[in-house]
Design a protein around this nucleic acid. Structure first.
Lengths: 123, 123
DNA sequence: CCGTATCCAGTGGGATACTG
DNA sequence: CAGTATCCCACTGGATACGG
């Protein structure tokens, strides 16, 4: 066992974080919030192709995890701002390393995929 | 637009990498392979709760992406070893930062979840 | 030992419509 | 503006059985 918790078991911190990032939208939201608080519909417009339902669900999960805050201002109509907590900010920064890796290595991955597919098609 | 590719669009490098890590097992496999080449059934035993089917599928995706190599030794019965490519190693190292974050902050997340649930239950 | 094939239940998430 | 409610389909992934 290389970790305090066994990464390869059912309940482990890596799985906990992975299951959060693995919902496909959370990292994008975290990243988008790094620039400061953002309103619901603003997020919706920025993160294209996300549905209202999924954005709502994901924000709720992130709030439950203590990664984002939800602030309601009782104007008419109401405005709601989402922002990173200090904890959320550290995760966003950590996750940004993945983003940078992805940008830097995407071409290599695409080339590998093409070669793999070509080899299988050629048979 | 803050990136060479737009992270919030459909096809972008972050989504590409995220969709790979988001299959829930890839990161665990990458991490497990950092110690050197591992055989199929060894991975299966180490990464508990993964099914043979999903392990096989995930390894194939990782191979297609050029992140792992698959080496067959024609013994009887056949032995197959999986290993990280140099590219895969850089991703594994980058992803390890997430693992460390998770270990370090899991307690805070669990506490936040408990507080969130308690607040909603108390109503 | 190292897989693939098949079947099947659970769920993630899109579309749409409605509310405070 | 910021959601919730409902329907529903497609895909994920587990269980099981079989093949090289």
């Amino acid at each position: 066992m290389r970790y305090a918790y066994d990464v390869y078991e059912d309940r482990c911190p890596t799985r906990l974080v992975l299951d959060r990032l693995a919902d496909k939208w959370a990292l994008l939201i975290l990243d988008r919030l790094e620039g400061g608080p953002v309103r619901f519909n603003h997020l919706r417009r920025d993160i294209k192709l996300i549905s209202q339902k999924v954005l709502s669900q994901t924000l709720k999960k992130l709030e439950r995890d203590g990664l984002v805050t939800r602030t309601v201002t009782p104007t008419v109509p109401v405005t709601v701002e989402y922002a990173l907590t200090p904890l959320g900010r550290t995760l966003a920064e950590t996750a940004a390393a993945l983003t940078h890796w992805a940008e830097h290595n995407m071409d290599a991955i695409l080339a590998s995929q093409a070669a793999y597919d070509a080899a299988r098609t050629a048979q």
